[in-house]
């Protein structure tokens, strides 16, 4: 009983311990290897890191919920791109341009709505056809990407709105706008998953779907709502990022699903569902970004980042398996 508790603490704490190790390592290694004179643990550097974590981070939060619920979403990268196009494209529409800065909230709203609708389509298909979410979203990953090209063509779309850029680059209490969005989203979703009936039911469904069905929980609407949510979050991520960059390429967001899943798994969420935490995912996102920056800081080629992250993901899996082994007498199947 207590060993379970220890394991739980270990699991929740592991990602933060890993972040500490990273910080220490890069700080010390940086002293000897750094290409710049700046210290790694520089405050501004850390703030920037948080900001840079935001795009993948916001999506990873949604992925956590989807995975706790026992599903997966491979279409988030395409949803991200499509929402970005809606955001930038809609601001060039005459109707919106006539509205001056009021176009901004409207464009945001349209982009977020796009994300939510794309999510809803996934959710509805998963719910009503009973086809596995992996396959449904594998399909819509292609399909939504196709829509991106159909709406946008093959050329990048650009539209810089300086009011928007100012907003996106602003700092409030030292944090960038993007960081605020990431942290607020994390807080809201954490509250949702730990405090609301929907959140608890999502855990129950992922943990033991049959039990949830037997207890009369309506599995479908809960899954649907979570898909809407991840679509919305993918759009939110796009909105935050492209408000500043102002230019979207139809291939943007590719492989985001894989990065998001990596962050979620690093944070300890179970692939089979029913277990995981929003806060740990935040840790996973930060750990990955830290690794990226840290490797750059000590002068490692940027290429090695992918290699290291991939191997760390596998190492985490191996470690998790070792922790869960029940001993030599276990059935060898």
């Amino acid at each position: 009983m207590t060993s379970n508790r220890y394991r739980d603490i270990l699991k929740h704490g592991a990602i933060w311990a890993f972040i500490l190790v990273e910080l220490t390592f890069f700080s010390i290694a940086g002293e000897y290897l750094s290409v710049s004179d700046k210290a790694f643990m520089d405050f501004d550097n850390m703030l920037l890191l948080l900001k840079q974590s935001a795009p993948i981070g916001i999506i990873a939060l949604g992925m956590t919920i989807i995975m706790i619920n026992g599903n997966i979403d491979l279409s988030v990268g395409a949803t991200y791109a499509l929402s970005a196009i809606v955001l930038l494209d809609s601001m060039t529409w005459p109707a919106l341009q006539a509205m001056g800065d009021w176009a901004i909230p409207l464009a945001w709203g349209l982009a977020l709505l796009t994300g939510a609708i794309l999510g809803a389509i996934n959710g509805l298909i998963v719910w009503k056809t009973g086809v596995d979410a992996f396959i449904v979203t594998l399909g819509s990953m292609l399909g939504y990407r196709g829509l991106v090209f159909m709406i946008n063509g093959e050329q990048p779309t650009s539209h810089l709105n300086w009011t928007l850029v100012d907003f996106a680059e602003a700092q409030f209490l030292g944090l960038h706008t993007a960081s605020w969005f990431l942290l607020t989203a994390a807080l809201v979703l954490w509250l949702m998953m730990t405090r609301t009936v929907h959140g608890r039911n999502a855990y129950a469904i992922g943990n033991n779907r049959e039990a949830a069905v037997n207890a009369g929980i309506r599995v479908g609407p809960h899954m649907m709502w979570n898909f809407v949510l991840i679509g919305f979050l993918a759009a939110l991520s796009a909105v935050v990022f492209y408000s500043e960059s102002g230019s979207v390429n139809p291939n943007d967001g590719m492989l985001f699903e894989l990065w998001a899943i990596t962050a979620v798994v690093l944070g300890g969420t179970k692939l089979t569902g029913g277990y995981g935490s929003i806060i740990s995912t935040l840790g996973g996102v930060i750990a990955i970004q830290l690794l990226r920056k840290g490797l750059g800081h000590i002068g490692a080629a940027t290429e090695t980042v992918n290699l290291v992250i991939g191997l760390i993901l596998i190492a985490v899996l191996l470690l998790d398996r070792q922790l869960n082994l029940k001993g030599k007498q276990e059935l060898k199947i």
Binding site: V197, R200, N201, Y203, A204, N207, N208, E210, A211, A212, N214, A215, G216, I217, G274, Y275
Partner: peptide, 20 residues
């Protein structure tokens, strides 16, 4: 047994009928 083992006893007992 039809229980969600990552949830608390209370949540399992009131599974599907959590007080709002």
């Amino acid at each position: 047994l039809s229980l969600a083992d990552e949830l608390s006893v209370a949540e399992n007992i009131f599974l599907g009928e959590l007080p709002l």
